[in-house]
Simulated assay, not measured.
Amino acid sequence: MQGTAALSAPFAFLGSPRDPQLKSVYTDITLANVLVQRGFTAAVWNDGMADNSPLFRTISRYTNKALLTEIERAYDDGRLLLIGTSNLDAQIPVIWNIGAIARSGHPKVLDTVRRILLTSSTLSGAFSPVLFDATLDGQPFQELHVDGSAFAQVFLPVNVSLYRQSGWRDGSR
């Protein structure tokens, strides 16, 4: 999922028991829950025209351990919640398997999922890219991500079963 759909994706994915949260995401959120506008000079001096920290707080209100536990159970039952972002450094689309991430048991699972939702829910250029800490072969590094439409206009995971077979099952990517 990409764009605003990513913000509602966990609730739609989990079905009708989460309809009140899904409805709330689209009817109760105001502009103040999403952004703080910056001045016109932000186009020159900042990495986004608005500060999306209010959106992160809003996502954090809705995305909690209980929600991740439900997503994890659905993943264990064979269902996939995939959310797309774009890695600015590598200039490639990235598909995040939220169930595998929830299942990973990593201490930063909740923050990571919130950051993925933030990244995929905000418009490139309008908001700052989101920084992710990562480790590859024991070496830490950072990646900047923006919404998935920066490098892929359509979200089409070609063969989802490959993700499960290629290490995504254990939460790695």
Score class of each variant (00 low, 15 high):
residue 5 A to D: 11
residue 6 A to G: 06
residue 9 A to E: 02
residue 9 A to S: 10
residue 10 P to M: 04
residue 13 F to Y: 14
residue 13 F to I: 05
residue 15 G to R: 10
residue 20 P to W: 00
residue 28 D to E: 15
residue 28 D to P: 00
residue 36 V to L: 11
residue 37 Q to C: 06
residue 40 F to D: 09
residue 40 F to T: 07
residue 41 T to D: 14
residue 42 A to W: 06
residue 44 V to P: 00
residue 46 N to Q: 14
residue 47 D to M: 10
residue 55 L to V: 04
residue 55 L to E: 05
residue 57 R to M: 12
residue 58 T to V: 07
residue 58 T to Y: 07
residue 59 I to F: 01
residue 60 S to P: 05
residue 62 Y to Q: 11
residue 63 T to L: 14
residue 66 A to R: 15
residue 68 L to T: 04
residue 70 E to R: 13
residue 72 E to G: 12
residue 75 Y to C: 03
residue 76 D to Y: 13
residue 90 A to N: 14
residue 93 P to V: 07
residue 95 I to E: 10
residue 97 N to M: 08
residue 100 A to W: 05
residue 101 I to T: 15
residue 103 R to M: 04
residue 107 P to I: 09
residue 109 V to E: 04
residue 111 D to E: 15
residue 111 D to W: 06
residue 114 R to K: 11
residue 121 S to N: 06
residue 123 L to H: 06
residue 124 S to E: 07
residue 126 A to F: 13
residue 128 S to L: 04
residue 130 V to M: 00
residue 133 D to S: 13
residue 134 A to H: 06
residue 139 Q to G: 01
residue 141 F to H: 14
residue 141 F to A: 10
residue 145 H to T: 12
residue 146 V to P: 03
residue 150 A to N: 04
residue 154 V to D: 11
residue 156 L to S: 11
residue 157 P to V: 09
residue 158 V to L: 14
residue 167 G to T: 02
residue 169 R to L: 14
residue 169 R to K: 13
residue 173 R to Y: 09
residue 173 R to V: 09
